[in-house]
């Protein structure tokens, strides 16, 4: 009896149908012509990076110890003692940065080509959720290294949650595991980072891709209509991106290795305390306005961004005018974001 026969008897599915479905869904998936341009492939990049993050993250848990006494020391151990530990940590660290960069690029592209329009509104919203989940990943992730920056970022970040109306205090206690940042906070962040967020983000990624496949990729104007199969051209493209990312992140790790910083000291707040660059706009904004205003404004911005696909049609009657609105709002958001980020970078 052949192996195929043996498996078929124990796993009785219609094999031919399976092959057919697989061909239809993956191998012969129609990819619109414009996807031949690299510019339109920024959606696959965060997915590849996420897969790499899962892998390097699992590797890091082999040595990381989530306790206030051991967290910093175990990160030091990974970076300085373990063979190629600096590389694995570097990949994870740079992977998170690149994931946020690629998501920003992807979202900007989707926004300005207005790919969020009916019937794809839900996928934009899921995309925003994915972006926020990624930021939560990043925040809980860099808190785990337990150096001065991560400790005080955790303190400041969780304090901000307190300002959320009604449930603020409850959220604060939930994230901290008590009133103060303590060992509970660290284990919570660890569990959220490695246990809670991954299945959540995988669920939303799947939903994102399913909706994308059901509608097909949105096609921007100005390209010749036509399709080509997923395999081999697009498949190779993804392989090339993966190889490029691995090489690129390894290079970054060697040129700009992630440092260790000072071990966390709950009694001394350092003079220059800054979050990671992707929180710079919010951070600078919060410095400019009173805390309550800052929190409410950030919340309002998030709401507008999330429901933009439903707001966009209300703003004007014709497509041309709506496009102008989108360009205006998107452009303004970009300019303000860049200004706030650069501003925060320039000042000590």
């Amino acid at each position: 009896m052949s192996v195929k026969q043996w498996i078929k008897e124990r796993f009785p599915i219609d094999y031919d149908k399976f092959v057919e479905i697989n061909e239809r869904i993956f191998i012969k998936e129609p990819i619109p012509n414009h996807m031949k341009k690299w510019f339109y492939c920024a959606g696959a990049t965060p997915l590849i990076l996420f897969a790499l993050q899962v892998f390097t993250g699992i590797l890091l848990t082999f040595y990381f110890v989530p306790s206030p006494e051991m967290a910093f020391e175990s990160v030091r151990h990974i970076t300085e003692d373990v063979r190629l530990g600096f590389w694995v940590r570097g990949l994870h660290r740079w992977g998170s940065n690149l994931m946020i960069i690629s998501l920003l690029l992807h979202m900007t592209r989707v926004f300005f080509t207005r790919a969020y329009r009916k019937p794809r509104e839900l996928n934009w919203i899921i995309g925003v959720i994915l972006f926020l989940l990624t930021l939560t990943f990043a925040f809980t992730g860099y808190s785990l290294t337990y150096n001065q920056l991560s400790y005080w970022a955790t303190t400041v970040g969780t304090n901000m949650i307190k300002e959320v109306p009604l449930v603020g205090h409850w959220l604060l206690v939930f994230w901290r595991g008590g009133e103060d940042v303590s060992a509970n906070t660290l284990t919570r962040f660890f569990t959220i980072h490695v246990g809670l967020l991954p299945p959540l983000i995988i669920f939303f990624i799947s939903l994102h891709i399913i909706i994308l496949r059901l509608h097909g990729v949105s096609e921007p104007e100005g390209f010749e209509k036509g399709y080509y199969p997923f395999y081999p051209h697009h498949f190779y493209k993804i392989v090339i991106i993966t190889l490029f990312l691995l090489a690129f992140m390894s290079t970054l790790t060697i040129i700009l290795p992630p440092g260790l910083g000072e071990p966390a000291d709950p009694t001394v707040t350092p003079f220059h305390i800054k979050p990671e660059w992707y929180f710079f706009p919010t951070y600078r904004f919060l410095k400019l306005v009173p805390l309550k205003v800052g929190i409410y404004a950030t919340g309002a911005f998030l709401l507008v961004m999330t429901f933009w696909p439903f707001i966009d049609p209300l703003l004007a009657k014709t497509e041309d005018r709506r496009r102008l609105w989108a360009y205006g709002v998107g452009g303004l958001t970009l300019i303000i974001t860049v200004i706030l980020t650069v501003w925060e970078m320039m000042v000590a």
Partner: peptide
């Protein structure tokens, strides 16, 4: 040549990657 390039690049990357991961996991 294109296929050969891609396949050998993937092969080399996979082999070195796996070797490095094993080195990471197994203490010297």
């Amino acid at each position: 040549l294109f296929n050969l390039g891609i396949i050998s690049a993937v092969f080399l990357a996979t082999v070195t990657f796996i070797r490095d991961v094993i080195a990471y996991l197994v203490p010297p």
